[in-house]
Design a protein around this nucleic acid. Structure first.
Lengths: 116, 116
DNA sequence: AGCACATATACGAATTTAATGATATAAAGC
DNA sequence: GCTTTATATCATTAAATTCGTATATGTGCT
């Protein structure tokens, strides 16, 4: 009979918390882990943009982009600001930027380095 | 008729590359963005572990854990080493560790800070 | 060879996610 | 108040992911 040693040693309180954090993190990562949404965030990392601008960048339908933005809003990765008819999106906080920077470092920096 | 300005200004070459990188990154993030898989990686970030150890940590069935590990292998987030009957898993490279560290900083560091 | 243990794979069912087209709301200008 | 522009939401369908169970493979031991 194999003993569930590690499980017990860890102590349920600590493990519980670890699991809780993992769920929070995976929720955020799920929002990030979509080609278009990741592109949206990269563009927004530069500066705030209107929905129309984002549509043009991605070359996707308005309703599709709007839906993806809604998802990012729900998961609190972006915030909005209204100016007349147009709505401007931007990154919601520094946490998002941190993760995004790490992703950028891993996947995009090598490209730059190669170019120098 | 609205003009697709930004799309053209960006230049297809650069944009193409950005899209390519976004797809690579989102593929990796998809693998990460799963509660159990993220936990697995966090545990592996500490040190290599056998499948049995991982099962005990997560309290999940062998086949489930093995399936998640297979996914992580496919997406090249982990590597394996066999020693007799047991197979040891560990993080595949520094890129994975970088992303994982960023996620950890955002979601787990605050907890530690609060405790001090 | 035969058995037991550790791990991997296959496959269908259930769930989740994404894209599309159509419609709705909100602000601005006439 | 009507029209245009910008954005959001909804319903439907298509596709991908996850989960559970069953089965297979590989390794060491006797």
């Amino acid at each position: 009979m194999p003993l569930p040693k590690l499980k017990e040693i860890e102590g349920s309180a600590e493990l519980e918390q670890m699991i809780e954090k993992a769920r929070e993190a995976s929720d955020m990562l799920k929002a990030l882990s979509h080609e278009s949404r990741l592109l949206l965030l990269c563009i927004l990392a530069e500066s705030e943009k209107s929905v129309t601008e984002l549509e043009q960048f991605l070359g996707e339908r308005q309703s599709t982009v709007s839906q993806q933005l809604a998802r990012l809003r729900l998961d609190r990765l972006v915030t909005t600001r209204r100016d007349g008819k147009t709505i401007y999106y931007s990154l919601a906080n520094e946490d998002v930027r941190k993760i995004l920077t790490a992703v950028y470092d891993v996947f995009c920096e090598p490209v730059r380095r190669r170019r120098r």
